[in-house]
Amino acid sequence: MEQSIPPQNTGIPPVRPKNWLVESILVTIFCCLPFGIAGIVFASQVNSKYDAGDYASAEKASRQAKTWTLVAFIIGIASALIWIIIAMTTTFFSAMFNHHFYP
């Protein structure tokens, strides 16, 4: 699905590397962290370098796009979980204290 044949005629080009653009835009919108933007920067490099015939650099940019997207995703999920745990414990304790000490 991601493979398409580029216009170059110099031998057989390698498979177009995955550019992680949609994934990095998703983490930018939902994980609320600027790391997703780094993912988009590398995603755009995957496209331009592949089209320029620089397949090794495109492959490298693809790996970096993946790394930044995953970093943003993991930090986003972790911070959301921490937030939910803090919100739940504070609600729990305030309810408990209100009940026992301030009836």
């Binding site: 699905m1 991601e2 398409s4 550019n19 653009l21 835009i25 988009i40 755009s44 496209n47």
Partner: peptide, 25 residues
């Protein structure tokens, strides 16, 4: 199916998305 995600692999699309997001930010 063998559909192609063509638009995401156009160099201009990724650049437009990047500039738009940075400007919006």
């Amino acid at each position: 199916k063998r559909w192609n995600q063509n638009i995401f692999y156009k160099p201009w699309f990724a650049k437009v998305a990047l500039v738009f997001i940075l400007l919006f930010w």
